[in-house]
Amino acid sequence: MYPVLITSPRLGLREFTPDDVDALTDIYGDPRVVEHMSFEPRDRDQVETTISNVTAAARVEPRTEYSLAAVLPSGHLAAFARLAIDTQHPGQSSGQLGFALRADLWGQGLGSEVVRLLLRLGFDELGLYRLWGARGPDNQPSARVMTKLGMIEEGRIRGHINVGGRWRDSVVHSILEPEWHRA
């Protein structure tokens, strides 16, 4: 599926372009935003590489990576949104989602809207059966977003990722297609 364009009243998901480097650097370079993520703040060169990689991955067939720009009606980048289809188990129908929202937009319900758009992409457009996300144990705003959208906390993966030389656990939440359509 290329290009992706999914909208809601306050946000749209679209493909990234090279013009998004500076706006994404503002997000990925902010220590507050990446505090609970699997990487440390990124500089402009690192973000430029990220955008180059995600734009190339968008054209791979079959497409398994959906790294998308979540934009406001003004066109300004609000978040990095990602849905990755599980390729470790061919024939399975699941994907992992994640997002990074600009810190100045926190507390406005936009994180929930980003995840809702990713759920629509995964279930309604791609026909997946299970979507899941992992968060840092201390990331309570992310826990609230996933719970609000009907995602069930499944449990903790101990020593899941290493960030800055320290191992960190992750907490997994998931939702199944029938649960999404009942909500």
Rank of each mutant, 00 (worst) to 15 (best):
P137E: 12
V47A: 07
N53R: 12
H89G: 04
I85F: 05
Y129V: 11
D104Q: 10
G150V: 12
T87M: 13
L121S: 03
T55G: 00
V114Y: 03
A81P: 06
F123T: 04
A57T: 02
A78I: 10
P31F: 11
V33G: 00
R156K: 13
A103I: 05
R102E: 13
P73F: 03
A70P: 01
S170M: 11
V171C: 01
L128Q: 02
A134K: 10
D169V: 03
P62C: 07
R82Q: 15
T64D: 04
D45H: 04
I152H: 13
Q88S: 07
D138T: 06
M37R: 13
Y129I: 10
S142P: 08
Y129A: 11
Q96R: 12
D22Y: 11
F16Q: 05
H76L: 15
R44P: 01
L68V: 01
G122C: 00
L131M: 05
S38D: 12
V4D: 00
I157M: 14
L83W: 02
A23F: 07
V71L: 02
E153D: 09
D104I: 07
L121D: 01
D20T: 04
G12D: 09
Q96S: 15
L105P: 00
T25V: 11
D26C: 12
R130A: 00
E153M: 09
V60A: 11
S93M: 14
F123V: 04
P62Q: 10
E154T: 06
E48C: 08
L110K: 00
R166L: 14
G95C: 04
L5D: 09
I85W: 02
R82H: 11
P62M: 09
V47F: 06
A143W: 02
G127I: 06
W106Q: 10
M37Y: 11
T87P: 04
D22E: 15
G136K: 11
E15V: 02
R10C: 06
F39P: 00
A69K: 00
H173K: 04
D104Y: 07
T50K: 12
E154C: 06
V4S: 08
